[in-house]
Design a protein around this nucleic acid. Sequence first.
DNA 1: CATGAATGAGGGTTCATTCAT
DNA 2: TATGAATGAACCCTCATTCAT
Lengths: 189, 189, 189, 189
Amino acid sequence: MSKHDKIIDAAMEVISEKGFEKTSISEIVKRAGIAQGTFYLYFKTKSSLIPAIASRLLSITLERIKSKDTEGESFWYFLDNLIEETFTITEEHKEVITLCYSGLAIEHSMEKWEAIYEPYYHWMESTIEKAISKGEIQEQININLTAQFIINMIENTAERYYMTSEHEDSVGMHKKEIFTFIKRSLCNA
Amino acid sequence: MSKHDKIIDAAMEVISEKGFEKTSISEIVKRAGIAQGTFYLYFKTKSSLIPAIASRLLSITLERIKSKDTEGESFWYFLDNLIEETFTITEEHKEVITLCYSGLAIEHSMEKWEAIYEPYYHWMESTIEKAISKGEIQEQININLTAQFIINMIENTAERYYMTSEHEDSVGMHKKEIFTFIKRSLCNA
Amino acid sequence: MSKHDKIIDAAMEVISEKGFEKTSISEIVKRAGIAQGTFYLYFKTKSSLIPAIASRLLSITLERIKSKDTEGESFWYFLDNLIEETFTITEEHKEVITLCYSGLAIEHSMEKWEAIYEPYYHWMESTIEKAISKGEIQEQININLTAQFIINMIENTAERYYMTSEHEDSVGMHKKEIFTFIKRSLCNA
Amino acid sequence: MSKHDKIIDAAMEVISEKGFEKTSISEIVKRAGIAQGTFYLYFKTKSSLIPAIASRLLSITLERIKSKDTEGESFWYFLDNLIEETFTITEEHKEVITLCYSGLAIEHSMEKWEAIYEPYYHWMESTIEKAISKGEIQEQININLTAQFIINMIENTAERYYMTSEHEDSVGMHKKEIFTFIKRSLCNA
DNA sequence: CATGAATGAGGGTTCATTCAT
DNA sequence: TATGAATGAACCCTCATTCAT
C-alpha cells in the first residue's frame, strides 16, 4: 500500500478512537509506521486530511452499496439493502463520519464537500426516478430533496443509534421502523 | 446575571465562532468579563461545559416551541410550527448544536445526554399519542422511534440546510417538503 | 528584578553566545529561571525581543558615556572618552550589537529603530555644535552626517576589532589611530 | 555554469531575500534546478556556504573596482571611484554582505575570512603608499589601519544608507560628505 | 468568592541531512 | 555523479490548570 494510503488508514483509525483535535500527528505516523516528517510529504497540514478521508469514506460507501445487485428488484428491496449497508458502515466508521459531518468540514470549501457527495445523491435520484416510472412510488415529490431526506435520515438514525444506544439488540427494530416510515411516505398507495 | 450564566453565554458565543477545541478558556473569561481563575470556581474542567451548554440549549428550544399554543389545533398545525421553530433555532445556534451532536459529546456519559433530551422526546411522544387518539395519524407506528425520527429529521435537515447551503431563498421549499414527507408517512389516509 | 528584565538579560546572554536564530526560547527561560509559557506573558514572539534589547543596549551606552563629566573639557577629550567607552561596551555586547545592526532589525519598523538611536545622534550633534562655536572644529561640515560618521566609525571599528582580531594587544593603537583620523579631519587647523 | 556555481548563485539570491537561517536548502536547490541530495556533493553543510559566498562577493568587488583604470590619476580621483563602486555593490548585495559581516561569520575560522579580505586590504595599502610617495597624502599615518578605516567607513556608510534610509535622493550628499571627511583627514595640507 | 500571573506538557510544523537507487 | 523520498530532532508557541494573594 502506498504511504499516502497508509497515512489515511492510520488517521481514520486514530481519529475514530480520539476525535480529530485530540489526534496527534505523532500518533498517526506511529500507527502508519513512518517518520514524523514523512507525513508532510503527503499532506500540507493536519486538517488537509479531512477532505481526503471524506473522499475515501464515500468510495467505500458507494462501492459497498452498488456491489449488491438490485437491478431487477423492487425499490423496497433496494431500500432495505441501503438501510442495512448504511448501518454496517456507520458502525465501523462512526467517529470519522461524525468528523466529516461536523464543524471541521466547514473549514473546507463546501464546494469540495458537495462535490464528494454529488455522485451519491445523483445515483439516489436516478433510482427514485426509475421507481417512479415503474409506478412504485408517487410522483408529486421533489426528487432532489427526497433523495437527500432518505440518505440523511438513514445515516443520521444509524449515527444516533451507534452514538447513543448501548442496547444494540433493538437494531432490527430501528431498521424496520425507518423502512416503514419511508415506505409509507413514498408508496403509491 | 450570575457569573455561572455569564460563563455559559460567553462559551456559547466563542464556541459558535471557533469550535470547541479551538476555544480557549482565556477567550471565554475575557468575553464573560471575569478572571481566569474564576472559571474554575464554576466548572471543574473545560469539557464540563458541554453538558451545561446542551442543557441550556434544550431549555431554549422547549420554551420556544411550547410558547406557541397549539392546544386546540390539529397535529399538522403543530408539526408546521415545530419545523418553523427548529429552523430558526438551528440557524441561531448551529455551531453549538453541532458540537453537542458531535464526537465530543461522546466523552461524556450518554446517560446525561439522554436525560437532557428525555423531556423533549417525551413531550413529542405524548403529542403523537394525542394525535392517534384523535384519529389524525395512524396507529401501527412505534411511538418512541417515530418521535425520534421526526425530531431528528427536522433538526438534521435544518442543520444541513444551514451548514451547506448558500441559496437561502429555497428555505421555504425545504420546510414544505419535510412537512409533506412526514405527513404522508403518518396520516391516517 | 522584574521578570521582564530577567528575560531580556537572559536573552542578551544567550544571543551573545549563540546568535539570534540559534537561540531557543527554552534556553532563554532556563537561564532566566522561569517557565516556558511565562516568556509569552511578556513578549508576543521571539523576534519582539529585538527592539527591547536594542533599547536596553542604547540606554546602557548613553548612560555610561554621559556619566563621565566632560563638560568643561575640550572636544578632543570628549572624543577620546567616547572611543574608550564604545570599545568597552562593544567588547561586552558585541554579539547583541551585531544582531541589532544586522538584517533582523530590518524585519522591524525602521522608524522604531531610528527612534531608539535618535537621542544618541542628537546628543552628538549638539556636542559638535558646541565645539564649532568654541572654534575647536571647522564649520563647513554637515553636522548631521558627521555625527553619524563619528559614531558609526567608532562603533564599527570596535566591532571589527573584537570580531576579527585575536591580537588584542593592539587595541591601544586602534583607538589612537581612529582618534587621530577623526581629529585630523575635523580640527580647525 | 557548473553546479557548484549554480548553487552559490541560488544561495545568494535566496539569502538576500530571506536571511541565512530562514533560507532552506530545499529552496536553494529548487532555485538552482538540482536535486536535494546534490547539494551535499558540493558543500558539506549549509553553513559551509558562507565562506564560498564571501569569496565570490569579494571577487566581484575587486574586479569592479580594478576595472576602472585610475593609474595615472590622483588618489582623490581613485577615492571618489571607490566610494561610487562600493555604494553600487552594496546596494545590489546588501543582505549577503550583512550576513558575511555578522555573527554567522564567527562560526567559521576568522583566518579564512581574513585571508579572503587580505588582497583587498593589501591593494588598498599599496595605493596609499603610492599616494604618500607622490606627496598627495601625509605620511604620519599607520598605513595598515588607515586602509581598513577607509574601506570599512565607506562600506559601513553604504550599508547603513541602504539599510535604514528611504530618502534615496540624498545619496549624493552622503558620498560627497564621506569623501570630504576622508580627504580632510589625509591630505597633505 | 475572586483574581491573574505563572506553569509546563504537548501540540503542529520545519528542515538539515542521509541513503538506496 | 545525481536523485529525491525519507528521516527525526528540535523548534516556537498555546492553553488548561493551579495557587498565592
